[in-house]
Each structure stands twice: as structure tokens, then as C-alpha cells.
Amino acid sequence: MSPRDMPIGGDILATLSAASHKLVRLLLGLVLLAMTLANALNAGARYLFGTQMRGTDELLAFSQVGIVMLGLAVVTAERRHLAVDLFPAKSPINALRRLVLSLVTFAATLYAAIQSYAFVERMAAFGSKSMGLGVPMVIPHALVFVGFALTAAVALATALADARALVSEESRR
């Protein structure tokens, strides 16, 4: 995404969000690469040496939760969500439509984040551990909260950009 699309005003903020965007993408790439290696090591160890890296299935499944939830924020920032695009590209209400959708996305992911937090809090208090790795389940569950919260923040930023675009379009008329 080009810096011009960066929704938050001010050079410092724009630089900051561009940098964090790059960083999150790098993190996502490293995690998927690590998952690929863990998968191969586990299957290889089982077939060749008859040993198991215990909990690999859990590690991979939890990592999948992580890349999807972090990726959700990236997809939102890059405005790459899959959608049914019935509106013509030059529809006069597009600017308004985009703003409404950004706001709906913000509201829905914020609600999901708040409810996720409530769940994570209860899970932390409950303290159950995963069967294979024995990690506290609050850790993988927290990924869902983090993903929704980040996405809500990103959606708010895109909504602000949409609002600005709408205003400038109105003033041009």
C-alpha cells in the first residue's frame, strides 16, 4: 500500500503505520515459514526415526489462528477483503458506501474484540492448559482478541480516511 493511502494524518504517524505494516507482514511470513519447517520436521521425524515432536499439531493449529487474526488486520489495512462487488466503479455513492462499510467493519470487529477480551479474561482465570503442548489456553485464545482489536483500530483509521475523502468529494461539487 502506498503512503498516500495511509489514512492517518501527519508524516510521523504515516511513517509509523507504514513501518508497523511492514513489520507485521514480515512477522506473518516468518511464522508461516516456521510452520512449514515444523510440519516437515515432525512428519520426517515420525517416518524416519519413529519419534514425535509432541504437540506439533497444536503448534500448527494455534499458529494458524495467529496468522489469520493478524492477517485480518493487514487485509483490512490493504483494503483487500473479499466482497461481492455489485456497485459500478464510478457509482456516485461509492465514497459514502465505503465510509459506511468501514464503520460497520469497525463496529463489528470492536464488538468482537470486546467480547473476546471478556472470554480471554475468563480463560485466564480458569487457567486450562492445552493437551499436547501444555501451554495455557489463554495464549492462543488471546490471538483472536489481538486480531480483532488491531483490525478495529485499522478499520477506524480507514473510516477516517473515507470520511475525509467524502468531504473533499462533496466540496469539489
Partner: peptide, 25 residues
């Protein structure tokens, strides 16, 4: 190679008889 649950109560006994406990989905 024997598929078990990830529980130590299945894994350890299988290992005791020389089988390879494999907690596969």
C-alpha cells in the same frame, strides 16, 4: 506407530511397550 490422544495416560503406557505414540488429529 500408534495413534493415541495427547494424554500422558495413553502416551506413556504405549511408550512403555516400545510403541511410538502418535497423537494425530
Amino acid at each position: 506407530k500408534v495413534r493415541t490422544f495427547a494424554s500422558p495416560l495413553q502416551v506413556l503406557p504405549m511408550e512403555a511397550v516400545g510403541a511410538i505414540a502418535t497423537p494425530l488429529p
